[in-house]
């Protein structure tokens, strides 16, 4: 197995926090805007456009690695140069896994909204918000529990290292 990429843990927290704020804005817009009656109208509602953008970012950073997430890049370019070096680096794999979960949840929200399901977008954006908020504010690690559930459910297996 190749050594996973290393990231500044503060960058991961920053990325999660920015994501949480944008998801909260999505929830607010979704509550105010509701669900439009026609598909074309639903596809241009502000909450939908924002959630679709966030879903695209999640898909991108789960595929390319969290280090290529736009907010991570922002952190490295603008914020990290002004900070002391990090005490230690972290593996990029756990936050990248969380980005994949975020991609799944937000894409469900996108699909529900396009299908015209009331509060589908709000529910998905709220769930993604809670995860991103807990990660950004409390350092909660989604992969620590969710990945284990996949293992326990028999969906993930790995050959024992020799």
């Amino acid at each position: 197995m190749s050594r996973p990429a290393q990231i500044d843990p503060r960058g991961a927290r920053f990325t999660a926090s920015v994501t949480a704020v944008l998801l909260l804005v999505t929830v607010a817009l979704g509550l105010v805007g509701g669900v439009a009656s026609s598909l074309t109208a639903r596809a241009v509602q502000p909450a939908f456009v924002l959630l679709a953008l966030l879903a695209a970012v999640f898909v991108w950073s789960s595929a390319a690695g969290v280090a290529r997430n736009p907010w991570s890049l922002l952190f490295r370019r603008l914020i990290r140069p002004r900070l002391a070096p990090p005490a230690e680096l972290e593996d990029a794999a756990p936050p990248t896994f969380a980005q994949g979960v975020g991609a799944f949840v937000t894409l469900v929200g996108v699909a529900l909204h396009l299908a015209g399901v009331p509060y589908g977008l709000v529910a998905a954006a709220s769930a993604a918000f809670v995860a991103a908020f807990l990660n950004g504010v409390f350092g909660y690690c989604l992969g620590c529990q969710l990945y284990l559930l996949l293992v326990r459910a028999g969906l993930v297996r790995k050959a024992a290292a020799v």
Partner: peptide, 23 residues
């Protein structure tokens, strides 16, 4: 919009409580 804002604030409050309990 005011109700929406109240719900959003409630969401943040619930997430904060969950985070404190978890920690």
């Amino acid at each position: 919009p005011l109700l929406a804002l109240a719900l959003v604030a409630a969401l943040v409050a619930v997430a904060t409580i969950v985070g404190l309990v978890w920690r």
